[in-house]
Amino acid sequence: MTIKPLADRVVTKMVEAEETTKSGIILAGSAKEKPQIAEIVAVGPGGVVDGKEVTMYVKAGDKVLLSKYSGTEVKVDGVEYTILRQSDILAVVE
């Protein structure tokens, strides 16, 4: 099954959080922060949203920085995705 976002929405898959600190300490599952960097899997077409023209600036494959609690998490075929509006993306990570 595939997810095709509508309007100004994007589908992202979170990048795995590091399990060790820079000094080499291994973190327990509960000590890890929620990752904020995700890879874009699919992008909606943009268009007119709420009476305003929306141009999509991101594309599939981009790595982006997300707001900490943005979007809606869904699970499809055992994989977790987050669906959010383009405006919830803070930056593109290069």
Rank of each mutant, 00 (worst) to 15 (best):
V54K: 15
E53W: 03
A42S: 09
A28Y: 08
A17F: 03
K75A: 10
V58P: 07
V92I: 15
K4Q: 14
E39M: 12
K34L: 11
E80Y: 07
T55P: 00
G61M: 06
A42L: 08
V11H: 01
I37F: 12
D50W: 14
V48N: 12
E16I: 00
I40C: 07
I37M: 12
D62T: 05
G29T: 15
V10E: 04
K59Q: 14
V74Q: 07
G44N: 05
L84R: 05
D77Q: 07
K63V: 13
D8S: 12
Y57V: 12
E33L: 15
E53C: 02
Q86E: 15
D62M: 08
Y81V: 09
K22T: 11
P45W: 08
V15K: 00
T20S: 09
V58H: 13
G24V: 02
G71N: 09
I89K: 01
T72N: 11
I89H: 00
D8A: 03
V76N: 09
G46T: 06
I26C: 04
E94L: 05
V43G: 06
G51F: 05
G71W: 08
Y69P: 01
I40M: 04
S70Y: 02
E19V: 13
L84G: 05
V58G: 03
G61F: 07
P35H: 11
E19C: 06
K75D: 09
Y69G: 01
P5Q: 02
Y57D: 13
G46K: 06
V54S: 00
K4S: 15
V41M: 08
I89G: 02
G46I: 10
T72D: 11
P5I: 05
K13A: 06
K59E: 13
I3N: 07
V11F: 08
G71S: 05
K52F: 10
T20W: 02
Y57T: 15
I25Y: 14
S87M: 14
M1L: 14
K34G: 06
E39P: 04
S87P: 00
T20A: 12
S87Q: 09
G51N: 05
G78Y: 03
V92D: 00
P5D: 03
M14H: 10
L65F: 15
T82G: 04
M14T: 12
M56E: 01
V92G: 01
T12R: 00
D50K: 14
V49L: 07
R85K: 15
V58S: 03
V76S: 01
V49R: 10
G51P: 05
M14P: 07
M1Q: 09
D62V: 09
S87N: 10
A42T: 06
A38L: 04
D77G: 01
M56R: 04
T20Q: 05
V54Y: 05
S23G: 08
I83D: 11
K52V: 09
A60N: 09
K32V: 02
T82D: 08
P35I: 11
I25Q: 11
L27M: 15
P45C: 04
K63Q: 15
T82F: 06
A7L: 12
D50Q: 13
L90H: 08
